[in-house]
Nucleic acid binder design. Structure first.
Ligand SMILES: [Mn+2]
Ligand SMILES: [Mn+2]
Ligand SMILES: [Zn+2]
Ligand SMILES: [Zn+2]
Lengths: 139, 139
DNA sequence: TCGTTAATGCAAATTATTTGCAATAAGGGG
DNA sequence: CCCCTTATTGCAAATAATTTGCATTAACGA
């Protein structure tokens, strides 16, 4: 394993699922990823450990991890979804439109305003999606 | 025409495109829509005026309208995109998760914070997407 | 009215993701 | 440690959403 995958597989087992070689690999790929890879990319990385692992298994495993709440699936600009380990404080994303790079940020203030707005409209906020798109400033 | 379509078709023509019967119909469907219909729904409404209009033409026309900036395409929750006439001040959406209804809102404050955040990260904000999801408060 | 060329309709192609099914393997019980 | 049951996998085929190729039709300026 490139890096310890604290939880992912164990939590999966705790939910009554079996621990398989491919799940361990996919969990490791996600845990050691420092970016927001899409499915083909996760598959590619997983294949470096097991060249027989199938795309279907990647999709199925990701779905399970997502249902258990171990990962998050974001689909920026309506493109194919990208994945990241769900841990640490919530954050939103800024996408660099010149290269697709994803930058994370967190705004206590925006989060609060969102709840306020929903409230004012008579709703209880259950979720939200916030993406900023921009290009590096010339400087 | 159910309702005057101020601009849509004319602006389309101004961009060098031809004014066709199906474009007039689609423009009218969009202009008189008070919701955020998806493509099948727009097609359905368009067929009430011309039962021969094809889904491809709807897709193609919407793409043109979007390129010219006459409409906006939002894809909530990764679902199929929904359309709305681009006019009036910018706004964001709150989706009622109990029935899919879309409620519009505008927050000067959030808009400003977004620009600030991008700036602080060294970016010039070129666009953003903000969606709130919630359920009606019991009250 | 014509001719040129954009636009349309329809079917086939794509892209992203899901699913059916037979073969394989996890892991609890013995 | 070995079995047996049953979840999981691989692969191909199925879906869902959107796009595209191509022959036919229709805009619209000359
Ligand atoms: Mn992130
Ligand atoms: Mn709207
Ligand atoms: Zn947030
Ligand atoms: Zn906004």
């Amino acid at each position: 394993m490139t890096q310890k995958s604290p939880g992912l597989v164990e939590l999966c087992k705790a939910k009554g699922r079996r621990i398989t070689g491919q799940r361990k690999i996919i969990a490791d790929v996600i845990s050691s990823a420092h970016d927001h890879p899409d499915v083909p990319e996760i598959h590619r990385r997983a294949m470096r450990k097991d060249e027989k692992i199938s795309l279907s298994t990647v999709y199925r495993t990701l779905k399970i991890f997502a249902e258990i709440g171990l990962i998050e699936q974001h689909s920026f600009e309506g493109g194919p979804f990208r994945v990241e380990r769900a841990e640490g404080p919530h954050h939103d994303h800024l996408i660099d439109t010149t290269n697709g790079r994803v930058i994370e940020f967190r705004s206590e203030e925006i989060e609060r305003l969102q709840t306020e707005i929903a409230e004012k409209l008579g709703y209880e906020l259950t979720g939200h999606r916030l993406e900023l798109y921009g290009r590096p400033k010339a400087k």
